[in-house]
């Protein structure tokens, strides 16, 4: 199994502003992508916690109860960040004030787990998507929503808030005989919506070939800039490409640290 991950931020924003996160763990055969909601507080911390937790253990599922149990980790990260600011002489009055009124983070999640024999299952909440490709065609695009809009389903970092929507679980099998080669993409909403807009159109094959030929962070950034001119929404954009080239489960854990994902050649093989 091979996974390649790419991430880029909104045009005119810095890498540090990017609220998407992904996590890949060969030991558990898991991959996850989470999109922190812009109009929430410290969403990238929450996205990172969700993505990392999903890939840490094969038997952890994003139920409301399990996600609520992650809330203290978000709060701990936030408190630590605010303490760092105070140590630097910056008074975080706005963040403190928002926290006092119950402000929290929201994030979507799409997580994929692949098992021995090529069976896979995917859990999705929000408009982050699982895209199933057959060769260079889009077979299906899955999210937990009927359409892409500005009000996606999400998990909330405040355990007293319900968040929005229900987790959708999709299952499949890679190793069915006499089927075309399959690729799974985990993508955030801007790319998911753009792929949905080209599905079934003449440009579909060429676009998918172009997407699958991406091999570096720079190539991905250029492609996204180019596609934005063709109508893709200017948003943080993440893609993890998972293919079933071969199977080999490694003992090594690969967790993606914040910032690290922007620097390295994004490929993991297991």
């Amino acid at each position: 199994m091979r996974a390649r991950a790419f991430i880029t931020q909104k045009e005119a924003e810095s890498v540090a502003d990017c609220q998407d996160r992904f996590s890949i763990n060969p030991a558990t055969g898991s991959v996850a992508v989470s999109d922190g909601m812009s109009q929430s507080l410290f969403p990238k911390y929450w996205a990172e916690i969700l993505a990392d937790r999903y890939t840490a253990e094969r038997d952890w599922f994003p139920t409301r109860e399990n996600v609520q149990a992650l809330a203290p980790f978000w709060m701990e990260k936030v408190r630590k960040r605010l303490e760092e600011w105070r140590a630097l002489g910056r008074e975080p009055w706005r963040s403190e004030s928002m926290l006092a009124t119950g402000a929290s983070a929201g994030a979507t999640l799409v997580g994929l787990r692949v098992g021995v024999g090529g069976k896979w299952s995917c859990d999705i909440l929000g408009d982050s998507c699982l895209v199933e490709l057959e060769g260079d065609h889009i077979k299906e695009i899955y999210s937990s929503m009927d359409q892409f809009d500005n009000y996606p389903d999400y998990f909330d970092s405040n355990p007293e808030k319900p968040g929005k929507g229900e987790v959708r679980t999709i299952t499949g099998n890679w190793n069915l005989p006499e089927e075309p080669p399959k690729t799974l993409l985990l993508v955030t909403d801007a790319l998911g919506a753009f792929l949905a807009s080209i599905k079934g159109k003449r440009e579909e094959t060429a676009r998918i070939r172009e997407l699958l030929s991406v091999e570096s962070a720079d190539e991905f950034k250029v492609l996204v800039q180019y596609w934005r001119k063709d109508g893709m929404h200017n948003d943080d954009t993440t893609m993890v490409v998972v293919t079933d080239d071969y199977w080999w489960l490694s003992e090594d854990h690969v967790f993606v640290q914040p910032g690290e994902c922007f620097k390295r050649q994004e490929e993991w093989v297991w």
């Binding site: 924003e13 922190g36 812009s38 109009q39 936030v78």
Partner: peptide
């Protein structure tokens, strides 16, 4: 407006 564009770190 600032709050809606504030991600915890600073407003966009």
């Amino acid at each position: 407006l600032i709050q809606r564009n504030f991600d915890g770190e600073s407003p966009k």
